[in-house]
Write a protein that binds this DNA or RNA. Sequence first.
DNA 1: TCCCAGGACTGAAACGGTTCAGTGACATCG
DNA 2: CGATGTCACTGAACCGTTTCAGTCCTGGGA
Lengths: 306, 306
Amino acid sequence: MREVAERAGVSIATVSFVLNGTKPVSPATRARIEAAMAELGYRRNVVARALARRRTNILAMVYPALDHRIGSAAAEFFTSAADAARTLDYHLVLWPVGSDGADLRELVGQGLADGVVLTEVQLHDPRLAILQETSTPFTLIGRTAEPGGLSYVDIDFDATVDLALQHLHDQGHRDIALISGDPRFEDYGPYVRTEAAYLRLAKDPLVVPSANTPASGKAAASRLPDHITAVLVLNEYAALGAASTRTVLPLLMTPETAALSTTPLTYLRTPAAELGRLATQALIQQLQGAPTPTPHLLPATLQERP
Amino acid sequence: MREVAERAGVSIATVSFVLNGTKPVSPATRARIEAAMAELGYRRNVVARALARRRTNILAMVYPALDHRIGSAAAEFFTSAADAARTLDYHLVLWPVGSDGADLRELVGQGLADGVVLTEVQLHDPRLAILQETSTPFTLIGRTAEPGGLSYVDIDFDATVDLALQHLHDQGHRDIALISGDPRFEDYGPYVRTEAAYLRLAKDPLVVPSANTPASGKAAASRLPDHITAVLVLNEYAALGAASTRTVLPLLMTPETAALSTTPLTYLRTPAAELGRLATQALIQQLQGAPTPTPHLLPATLQERP
DNA sequence: TCCCAGGACTGAAACGGTTCAGTGACATCG
DNA sequence: CGATGTCACTGAACCGTTTCAGTCCTGGGA
């Protein structure tokens, strides 16, 4: 940068001004500086910039990648969030951490990321405490049991289940079961909230668990009593298996997974891209000093069989 | 850091020494400094540290996430690479870029990442030129048409196809076809190299293309002449569909995808975790001044049906 | 003609660490 | 007893920007 300044016959401060558009610079000098930068192949050092400004313009999406593999919904969160960040002049990277929070503590408060998008949120998530005690700005994709005051975006499970039941009812189904998730994940919001919504809304509720594999879904479906004519399925891979035996309606599926079905499928599409985008925008607003952003709850949307 | 130094009655240099173990410090002062750090809740600022040392200890895995979604193999690369990086005291993050290279150029040479792991490498990959002209250390997962002198890890397609044909031959199959990838991806190494290996090794070769979906794989399989008794399938999702009609042997599958099959599957497992690990290690060796690391070629390994 | 406002640019102090040439104090050696 | 090392620690330069209080110059108003 000093070289650029010398070559253009100005001070480094002026170079900085044209780089950032911070202060007005006459067209003539601006041109000289830009020429000098081009000739020297100058690239500003983002680390030094980050140090001086006390922000890096980097956002970390933390994902417990060291534990679960990245699923199709997570991939969609990531892609759309990264995209949204880019249009707002931030970088969003996927930061792998274990789920225990040790790595998270290391990442945070060291000034590397300006803020954090937290995914795979548990109802009682120990990672929140870390973020709060280090006063790191953050937004959740998902939410805890008591998310009051937090910045989050999440699926509107009530509306989603309602939509699903309504749709099946319109098709003439009256006895509708739910194939839910593995009951061991009792602290996982989507499972708990979907079940709760279903139990509240369904006429004659029947819930059976299933792991997130086609085989498990198929087995669960075959255990259903005969009067059940249709079934909501929470896990997308379980839905794939169950679909071979019953009328199923997957509640949270991505188009990628739907494409894996051999028969065309009507399903509820996870609003993953929208959530990723909203989360990023909420986080950035927060960074720019907006007050507590209003949380967003989005329902999955009906995707009719082609 | 200055506060820590004052509280411990030493200079900031000494604090730095205990932080990094750079120089010997007497046990007594070390204890005082550590106490002071604990009391103040001090965390070193990684940005300042990176500026002073001219390296960030961050590695970027660049993935064209803005174009394709992240597949199961990519997820596995990422996870294992991040893990390997961690044990060597580096952080590896997933950096989303478009495939055109504009974002890559921005990322690189700005001093944010010490090195790059490049994925989804094309046979003629324009991104290589960018990395080379900015003299960024990098390692490929995959390889270009002429990878001489480059640091890379990749699948040994010859050995993989050989292993596959051998296995099917042992089972009594003599007429073995290949369901390959979408011919539009003519610059994609795995497709090209697998086909080449198959054409060279198979007795009476027959190649049919397929997109990476079960439906497409099934259609491709149904188009095969009757004397074909077994088929190698390149794309894992295509393999899922083809498996319902023929004896198939998927060439590059991940366990996650295999779990989606309703019937148990014998398949060749992509050595994704190993490749991710090796790539990271090669990159870090390079950063630490080792000469050109020797490339690694790994075959997929046979995973017998349970 | 003089004064003053405003625009364009400069100098130097941060930002928070790392690193290296020194500085004492103390032990060792001839 | 003086010279020489060794060990623990310090001071200050440096990493490459941003930022802010000034300085200088120009033009317009009185």
